[in-house]
Amino acid sequence: MPENVSMLQLLGPVVLALAAALWVVGLARILRRTRPQATSWHSDPRLPGLPYQRQTAPEMEAVELTPAERDAFAGLVRQLGDGR
């Protein structure tokens, strides 16, 4: 070990080389998973981090309006229609 070089200066390139190697390995794994040939062994097409999505729509809700509410809504529609 040279006398004028500190321990941190010697460890710097080693740490950078290790980080680069880990980055390359991680990138290779990600690229391997995204290949079209690699998707054949995936049995579940859903992403594991997403919650279960139900396949049916929620029940429709309907509320009957009173005649005064219908008139007020019709007036609002007329006001918004004039704004063009």
Rank of each mutant, 00 (worst) to 15 (best):
M1D: 15
M1Q: 15
M1N: 15
M1Y: 15
P2F: 09
P2C: 03
E3N: 14
N4R: 13
N4L: 12
N4C: 05
V5Q: 12
V5Y: 07
V5C: 07
S6C: 05
S6F: 01
M7K: 07
L8G: 00
L8M: 09
Q9V: 07
Q9G: 06
Q9L: 11
L10Q: 11
G12A: 15
G12S: 14
G12W: 10
P13F: 05
P13G: 02
P13S: 06
P13H: 04
P13T: 04
V14P: 00
V14H: 00
L16S: 05
A17W: 03
L18H: 01
L18F: 00
L18V: 11
A20Q: 07
A21L: 12
A21F: 01
A21C: 12
L22C: 10
L22Y: 01
L22T: 08
L22D: 02
W23F: 08
W23C: 05
V24N: 03
G26H: 08
G26F: 03
L27S: 10
A28M: 09
A28R: 08
R29Q: 11
I30Q: 12
I30C: 08
R33W: 11
T34P: 00
T34G: 03
P36T: 03
P36V: 04
P36R: 12
Q37V: 15
Q37T: 14
T39E: 12
W41N: 10
W41L: 13
W41I: 13
W41G: 04
H42Y: 12
S43V: 10
S43C: 02
S43D: 04
D44W: 13
R46Q: 13
R46I: 05
L47E: 11
L47C: 09
L47A: 12
P48K: 09
G49V: 07
L50W: 15
Y52N: 05
Y52R: 09
Y52K: 06
Y52E: 10
Q53I: 13
Q53C: 10
R54Y: 05
R54G: 09
R54M: 07
R54F: 02
Q55L: 13
T56A: 11
A57L: 14
P58Q: 06
M60A: 13
M60V: 13
M60N: 08
M60S: 11
E61T: 08
E61F: 03
E61G: 03
E61P: 00
E61N: 04
E61K: 04
E61H: 04
A62S: 02
A62L: 01
A62Y: 01
V63D: 06
V63T: 13
T66W: 01
E69H: 03
D71M: 06
D71P: 00
D71R: 05
D71H: 06
A72Q: 06
A72K: 02
A72W: 02
F73A: 06
F73C: 02
A74V: 04
G75L: 09
G75Q: 13
L76I: 07
V77H: 06
V77A: 15
R78E: 07
R78T: 14
Q79H: 14
L80T: 07
L80V: 11
L80Y: 02
D82F: 08
D82Q: 13
G83R: 13
R84Q: 14
R84L: 15
